[in-house]
């Protein structure tokens, strides 16, 4: 296992150095994509624009993330949400409500429900750094042009039975190795969600999507735009960020 990881790492380093990428395997492409998406830690400032039917709601939030296990989100606006904070450690989510000055602990299926009416679930939002190649078997379907960029088209199939997003189809940008479009499918093959990347920025050691739109296909006329106004990778997260005391800090 370690050897494989090391091998992949070596390969990915050589590839990002710009050497020939013509004959990449599906696994290698996914690894390249994962490398862009996966980080140890990150801090971001996000605008979320939720559209449901004719209604548009805008929310601003900041987020600290450490891998897929820890995440801390604080809402800045609208006024009703300001000061609401969420701390996810492992499979447990704790939410602090300033209006009640109390913390509620949630686990299990709540995490798969829509977060604050958006098209993202709590998990979609807190587990962005998921390494897809650990969870899915991958197959290269071919190449296609998407949003004026040449893309590999990958098909991912879950390694385990119990997964809501059983199949994923990713259009990986051939130059930057970012999934510029992602389709999430149920096991039946029914399309559940579509994520489209509208803007990609380059950072110190990676590319990262900074403007995406998620559409929950089971809801009619609904989409959520997420704009990452600022993101810093692999920063030193202040001590005590992922603690309950921080949650209740005013």
């Amino acid at each position: 296992m370690n050897k494989v990881a090391l091998f992949l790492l070596v390969i990915s380093i050589t590839l990002t150095c710009g050497k020939a990428g013509e004959d990449l395997t599906a696994e290698e492409i996914l690894a390249m994509r994962d490398k862009n998406m996966v980080f140890d830690t990150a801090y971001s400032e996000i605008d979320m624009i939720i559209t449901i039917g004719k209604r548009v709601v805008e929310k601003k939030l900041t987020s600290y993330t450490e891998g897929t296990e820890k995440s801390f989100i604080e809402f800045l606006s609208p006024a009703r949400d300001r000061g609401t904070k969420m701390l996810k450690t492992g499979k447990v989510l704790k939410i602090y409500f300033p209006s009640a000055e109390r913390v509620m602990r949630l686990s299990g299926h709540m995490l798969r429900q829509s977060m604050m009416g958006s098209d993202f679930s709590y998990e979609d939002l807190t587990e962005t750094a998921e390494e897809l190649r650990k969870e899915y078997n991958v197959k290269l379907l071919g190449e296609e042009v998407f949003a004026a960029a040449q893309c590999y088209v990958l098909e991912l199939e879950s390694k385990i039975e119990n997964k809501t997003y059983f199949f994923i189809k990713i259009w990986v940008d051939k130059e930057r190795y970012i999934g510029s479009k992602v389709e999430f499918y149920a096991k039946s093959g029914k399309l559940l969600k579509v994520l489209a990347v509208e803007d990609i920025k380059s950072f110190k050691n990676r590319y990262y999507p900074t403007k995406v739109t998620m559409e929950d296909k089971l809801r009619k006329n609904s989409k959520t735009e997420m704009i990452i106004k600022r993101i810093e990778f692999d920063i030193l997260i202040p001590q005590g960020t992922f603690t309950e005391r921080n949650l209740m800090r005013k």
Partner: peptide
């Protein structure tokens, strides 16, 4: 008791 609900603007709101 803490009571939590989602309001008409999709904010999550709570009161004790």
């Amino acid at each position: 008791l803490l009571a939590v609900t989602s309001d008409i603007n999709y904010s999550t709101y709570a009161l004790t």
